[in-house]
């Protein structure tokens, strides 16, 4: 992140796994300024920070929010929507591991249907995943993108694209969590890639009012070459209780999402 922003980034981090990962005071492991903030307020802090940089003539610095799905899709949604509606000049990166991992794998609104969490312990989650990127597109902001840790070049390019745009920019980064999704650490990239290959996660960009499906997903959509969703869920313990009905729901969710994006894509 520090290298992508050429040393000009300032990171705002609400309560999430990263609050712990960066280490304990008086040391920090990140070579860039970081502001840790209460859960619901990252986008608001970033907006204020950006405005201060503007009045102080430091507009070449970039303010970037790095937040989990709980801090984005749930408790942070109001301040996120507020900042997006005002077109605050910040980049908001939601690293989406589809549950409250830092507090011990509780369900979030970004948890997919059928997934086990510690608050959906028997049946799995009964509601579909909230689509935050689509909500951001509805705010008509200059840039929205989805990305995956399995496609680092795609993510890096999207980050670079977003750095050159002014106004509110949003990137949703699909980030499997071995502990919470119940698979071996070493399979992290494979699971993330399988999400894209089964169409459970679609890579795209929304820019200048137009959706463009990104290369890895575009090929799969054009050729209709998606792998069966079963291949994605069987490698993760969290989907162990998925029955036929839930699986049908996952297929419907995926197909509707592809249909929706296809309609809007150029």
């Amino acid at each position: 992140m520090s290298s992508a922003t050429d040393g000009k980034g300032i990171l705002v981090v609400p309560a999430c796994c990263t609050s712990v990962v960066v280490g304990t005071a008086p040391k920090t492991s990140m070579r860039m300024p970081i502001v840790h903030v209460p859960f619901a307020s990252a986008a608001a802090v970033a907006s204020g920070l950006r405005e201060a940089l503007l009045v102080r003539g430091l507009e070449d610095k970039q303010v970037i929010v790095w937040a989990g799905d709980g801090g984005t899709a749930d408790i942070g949604m109001a301040s996120l929507s507020g900042a997006a509606e005002k077109n605050a000049d910040i980049i908001y990166i939601m690293y989406d591991n589809e549950a409250y991992m830092n507090t011990g794998i509780q369900r979030s609104s970004s948890t997919p249907r059928g997934a086990w969490t510690t608050t959906t312990p028997i049946m799995g989650k009964t509601e579909p995943k909230k689509d935050v990127s689509r909500i951001m597109i509805s705010h008509d902001v200059p840039y929205v993108a989805t990305a995956s840790i399995a496609y680092p070049h795609d993510f890096y390019n999207k980050l670079q694209t977003s750095l050159k745009i002014r106004g509110f920019r949003f990137i949703q980064l699909h980030s499997p969590c071995p502990v919470g999704w119940r698979f071996d650490d070493s399979l992290t990239v494979d699971v993330a890639r399988m999400a894209v290959e089964t169409g459970m996660w679609i890579l795209y960009e929304y820019k200048n009012g137009v959706i463009e499906i990104s290369n890895p997903s575009r090929y799969l959509i054009q050729q209709n070459k998606f792998k069966p969703i079963e291949e994605y869920i069987k490698i993760q313990g969290r989907f162990a209780s998925v029955d036929e009905n839930t699986l049908k729901g996952l297929y419907e969710y995926r197909n509707r999402n592809i249909e929706f994006l296809n309609k809007l894509a150029k």
């Binding site: 280490g23 304990t24 008086p26 492991s29």
Partner: peptide, 12 residues
């Protein structure tokens, strides 16, 4: 103050 400086091995 609640501030920290970059350092190798911040998390041990």
């Amino acid at each position: 103050l609640p501030i920290s400086y970059p350092s190798e091995g911040a998390a041990g």
